[in-house]
Simulated scan of single mutants.
Amino acid sequence: MLLNGNDPQAIATAARALAAGELVALPTETVYGLGARADDDAAVAKIFAAKGRPADHPLIVHVLDAEDAAYFAADLPEVARRLMQAFWPGPMTVIVPRAEGVAAASAGGQSSIGLRCPAHPVARALLAAARQQGVRGVAAPSANRFGRVSPTRAAHVADEFDADLLVLDGGDCAVGIESSIVDCSRGQAVLLRPGVLTAAQIEAAIGSPLLAPDAAAPRASGTLAAHYAPRATVRLLSTEQLQQRLSGALPEGLAVYSRTALAFAGCILQPMPLDAVVAAQQLFAVLRDLDAAGAREIWVESPPPAREWDGVRDRLTRAAAAFE
Rank of each mutant, 00 (worst) to 15 (best):
A154E: 00
A103M: 05
A174S: 15
L210P: 03
A74T: 09
A321N: 13
L23D: 01
R245P: 06
D291V: 13
G195V: 08
T198A: 07
A19F: 06
A69N: 03
A140R: 00
R116M: 06
V24C: 03
C173Q: 01
A12N: 08
A143C: 11
L269S: 06
T317V: 15
A99P: 10
Q244P: 06
L34F: 06
H120M: 09
P251T: 09
E78K: 14
D7K: 12
G311T: 05
L210N: 10
G134F: 02
D310M: 08
A38G: 08
L269P: 05
W309T: 02
I47A: 05
A217P: 02
E308I: 07
P271C: 13
L242G: 02
V96M: 06
R145K: 15
L316M: 11
V190H: 05
T13W: 09
E301K: 03
D169T: 12
A163I: 10
T28P: 01
G171C: 11
Y257I: 13
I47R: 02
A322Y: 14
H57W: 04
E22S: 13
P218I: 11
R37P: 12
R315C: 03
G114Y: 02
L3Q: 05
V234Y: 01
H156P: 12
K51Y: 09
G266H: 12
D164S: 15
A45V: 05
G187T: 09
D162R: 14
A220V: 08
D56S: 06
S106V: 05
N144C: 04
A216T: 15
P118F: 07
E178V: 14
R193E: 11
A99V: 07
A261D: 01
A279S: 10
Q241D: 15
L262V: 12
L18Y: 04
A205Q: 09
P54T: 09
D183A: 12
A158Y: 05
R37K: 14
W299C: 01
E29D: 12
G222Y: 00
P209M: 10
A66P: 05
Q9P: 06
W88C: 04
L166Y: 02
Y32T: 04
P303L: 01
A104L: 14
A155Q: 15
V182H: 00
E67G: 15
F87N: 01
D39M: 08
V312N: 02
D7V: 12
A69Q: 05
A215E: 14
A130F: 03
V44P: 01
S142K: 00
A119V: 07
E178R: 01
R219K: 14
T317F: 09
V96Q: 01
S208C: 11
V96N: 01
E203K: 13
L237V: 13
R288Q: 11
G101L: 12
P121C: 14
L23F: 06
A279D: 06
I47E: 00
I60S: 00
Q110Y: 02
A99L: 08
Q244D: 13
N6E: 11
W88V: 10
C267M: 15
L192N: 00
G134Y: 05
S142F: 08
R318T: 06
H227T: 10
W299A: 01
G187A: 10
R131L: 07
Q241T: 10
P305K: 03
Q188K: 14
A321R: 09
E203R: 12
P271Q: 10
D162T: 15
E22M: 11
A199H: 07
T260F: 05
E297L: 08
R116G: 04
V182Y: 00
I177W: 03
A69P: 04
S302Y: 07
